[in-house]
């Protein structure tokens, strides 16, 4: 049985902390999904044995090193390679053939976390013969996870599951050809990393920084409220040319957003849209 603490921190304290963090560091969590954000804060307090709101508030504001840990802990960084194989199947069959018509392909993984989906995409592109003319921009609010993503290495223990996902999404090659096992790590090939650009980007505050043929942002919007979701979807729309693709997580949608009319649905089940105007 888990020992997950019941709420130590109340709603007013969450608001207060959010305000203090914004004033001290400029990170704005006020439009995050409150249920999830509060749960994550409680989890941090439990994991770091912080008994009271006062102590958490003090630590977060006074200790920048702890704040960086706090950010890594409250933002969810659970991801896997070829998660939802059915999604990658559609990418492989319907989206990538369209991308192949461009001389240079730009892809943005927004909220890339530790990079598993970026490497998955790079593998699909390599198999389609397109990796050499693709640039994969991968961004996250969190510098720590970007460093992990850029390191090319992932826990070797996860490779069995990722291999199954790879096969389930129609992978035809030997997945283990794409990495070298070293001291409990699976180190992926340099040729993937060479096509990737990792950079911090805050979806809440930062602007569009380029135009992309495909934007992937899967299971990031679920942590935002409707207002912020709308703002981010608008940012994506502004970062896509006509015929650019947008892919979200399995339970996320653009239908409520102010720019929904700019898009046509490419695959309803796998949540892929294409900009039409």
């Amino acid at each position: 049985m888990n020992n997950e603490a019941i709420n130590i921190i109340n709603d007013n304290e969450v608001e207060l902390l959010t305000d203090h963090i914004f004033k001290r560091y400029g990170y704005d969590f006020s439009d995050y999904s409150q249920a999830s954000f509060k749960r994550r804060i409680n989890r941090v307090m439990q994991n770091f044995k912080i008994p009271s709101f006062a102590e958490l508030d003090h630590k977060v504001i006074e200790n920048e090193q702890f704040f960086n840990v706090f950010i890594e802990e409250v933002t969810v960084n659970v991801t896997e390679m070829f998660r939802d194989p059915a999604f990658y199947k559609v990418l492989r069959k319907e989206v990538i053939p369209q991308l192949s018509t461009y001389p240079l392909i730009r892809i943005w993984h927004a909220g890339c976390s530790t990079g598993e989906e970026v490497y998955s995409m790079a593998i699909l592109l390599k198999e389609a013969g397109l990796l050499e003319r693709t640039l994969l921009y991968a961004t996250d609010i969190n510098q720590q996870v970007l460093e992990k993503a850029a390191s090319m290495s992932f826990p070797l223990d996860n490779m069995k599951e990722y291999t199954e996902n790879y096969i389930n999404c129609g992978g035809l090659f030997d997945f283990s050809d794409y990495y070298v096992a070293q001291y409990g790590k699976a180190v992926f090939l340099e040729e993937f990393r060479n096509r990737m650009v990792f950079s911090p980007h805050n979806l809440v505050l930062d602007q569009s920084f380029n135009e992309f043929n495909l934007i992937l942002c899967r299971n990031v919007l679920i942590y935002f409220n409707r207002d912020l979701q709308n703002k981010v979807i608008k940012l994506f729309s502004d970062s896509l040319p006509v015929l650019g693709y947008l892919a979200l997580g399995n339970k996320e949608s653009i239908s409520f957003s102010s720019v929904a009319d700019n898009f046509e649905t490419i695959n309803k089940q796998e949540r892929i849209w294409r900009k039409k105007k």
């Binding site: 709603d11 999904s33 409150q34 249920a35 999830s36 749960r39 969810v76 659970v78 679920i222 942590y223």
Partner: peptide, 15 residues
């Protein structure tokens, strides 16, 4: 599966 104060659902893909 989580619920929000305004009686809507939020999803969460954490641990």
């Amino acid at each position: 599966l989580l619920v929000e104060k305004n009686h809507s659902f939020s999803l969460d893909f954490s641990e």
